[in-house]
Design a protein around this nucleic acid. Structure first.
Lengths: 222, 222
DNA sequence: ACCTGAACACCGTTCAAGT
DNA sequence: ACCTGAACACCGTTCAAGT
C-alpha cells in the first residue's frame, strides 16, 4: 500500500493537490472533530477543492480510511524494546497495540471497515506469535492464539468506545442503567447483587487483567 | 423496554400502524436484505406509510435498532439446560450468546450503536457470573471475568462479520493478502513462515478454543 | 493528467398543516 | 392522536466537459 508514486511523465496538467495533502487534511479533521465529521465534501472544501478532485487521489472513502489508519499506525506503533521472557513479551506487544487503538476512538469505524493489518502493526503481531512459539506452542497454535488476543483487544476497544459515546451524547440514563434498575433478585441474583457496583466495575480499565488471563490460558493449553 | 402500551384514551385519530408492525417490518427487511437496506424511508414505503409516521412509534432510527435487537434476542436467547459444572456452564452460556450473535450479521451495527444489554441476554450473563462465583471467584472478579468474555465474544463477531463482508463484495485481493504477499522473512520470520497457512487458519472457527483458554486463565487467576 | 459543475440517487429528521 | 407533504441539510459517487 501507499508506495511512493512512480516518476510520472511530465504530460498533462500539473497536480494542484497530492495524496499526502488529502490524507493529512483528513487526519486533522478526524483528530479535531471526530470521524463522523469526515466527509468527502467537507474534506474537499477544507482543502480548497471539489469533492471530485479527491477521487483522483484515493479510490473512494473506504480507501481513504485505510490510508488514515496506516498513517496513524506509522506514528503510533514504532518498534520498541520488549521483555525477553515470552509471556511478558506477548503481553507487552498486545498492550502496545491496545494502547495505540485506545488513544484513537475513530478507529472503531475503520476496524469494522477493514481487517486492520497495517504494515506498521505487523511487527507487534510478529512479537506475539514469536513469544507464543518461544514458549513452546506450535506455529499453528501460536497463530490461533494471536487471533484470540486480537478478538479480545478489538472487542475491548469497540465496547469501550461505544460506551464512551453513549455517555457523552445525552443525559438520559443508558439502556443498561434502565435494565439494571429493574432487576429481579429472584430471577437474576448475581446481577442484582452486583447491581450498584456494575457501573463502577464497567468503568475500570481491566484490559490487562483479562489479557493476562487469556495468555495464561493459551500457554497452559499449548 | 418495550412494555405493553398502557390502555390509551379513546380520543383522537385511531392508529393506522403500530410499533409492532414497524419493528416486524424492519426485521423482515434486515433479515432478507441486510441492515444496510434498512432506512426510515424504505421502511415507510414497505409499510405503506410515510417516513414521518414512523417517528410516532419510535424515537429515532437508533431506538429502532435497539428494539430490533431486543426482538431478535427474545427469539434466539431462550434459557436452556446448561451443565452444572461451573467451568462448563460458563463456556456453554458464552457459546450460546456467541452463536446467537454469529447467526445474525447485522448485529455488528447495533453492537457499536448500543451496549447490548437486552433483557433476554441477561439470563446467560447471569449464568456466566454465577459459574465463575461457584468456582470460587469473588463477585467482583466474576464480573470482570464476564467482561473479558464479552470483549472476546464481541470482538470475534465484529472481526468475523467484517471479514465476511470484505470477501463477499469484490474480487480484488484483500489488504491483508497484499500485505502477506510482500512479507520479508528476515524482518518478520514467524509471519512469513505462517504465510500460506494464515488465510486457512483465519477461516477456521476457533471461538471455543480461545474461549476455553480465557476461562481457564480466569479460573486459574481467581 | 488533473480538475470542475452539475447531477443522480439517496439519507435522517423537523416543521406546519391536515383529519 | 395520528398521519401527510414539503422541505432542510446533508451524503458518496458518476458523468461529461473543461484546461
Amino acid at each position: 500500500m501507499q508506495q511512493p508514486s512512480a516518476p510520472r511523465k511530465a504530460t498533462g496538467r500539473p497536480p494542484r493537490i497530492s495524496r499526502e495533502e488529502v490524507v493529512g487534511t483528513a487526519r486533522r479533521i478526524v483528530t479535531e472533530e471526530g470521524v463522523g465529521k469526515l466527509t468527502m465534501r467537507r474534506l474537499a472544501t477544507e482543502i480548497g477543492s471539489t469533492p471530485m478532485a479527491l477521487y483522483h487521489h484515493v479510490r473512494n472513502k473506504e480507501e481513504l480510511l485505510v490510508l488514515l489508519l496506516d498513517d496513524y499506525a506509522a506514528q503510533a506503533l514504532r518498534p520498541t524494546a520488549l521483555p525477553a521472557e515470552p509471556r511478558e513479551r506477548v503481553v507487552a506487544a498486545a498492550s502496545a497495540i491496545h494502547q495505540a487503538l485506545a488513544a484513537c476512538p475513530w478507529i472503531v469505524e475503520v476496524l469494522t471497515a477493514d481487517d486492520l493489518m497495517s504494515t506498521h502493526a505487523l511487527w507487534f503481531v510478529e512479537q506475539i506469535v514469536d513469544g507464543l512459539v518461544d514458549w513452546g506452542l506450535s506455529l499453528e497454535r501460536a497463530v490461533r492464539g494471536y487471533r484470540a488476543i486480537w478478538y479480545y483487544t478489538a472487542g475491548e476497544i469497540v465496547v469501550r468506545v461505544t460506551a464512551a459515546r453513549r455517555r457523552g451524547a445525552d443525559d438520559r440514563p443508558t439502556y443498561r442503567e434502565q435494565v439494571f434498575a429493574g432487576l429481579d433478585p429472584d430471577e437474576l441474583p448475581r446481577l442484582a447483587q452486583a447491581g450498584e457496583r456494575w457501573e463502577a466495575l464497567t468503568a475500570e480499565d481491566t484490559y490487562e487483567d483479562g489479557l493476562r488471563a487469556l495468555v495464561d490460558g493459551l500457554l497452559a493449553a499449548g
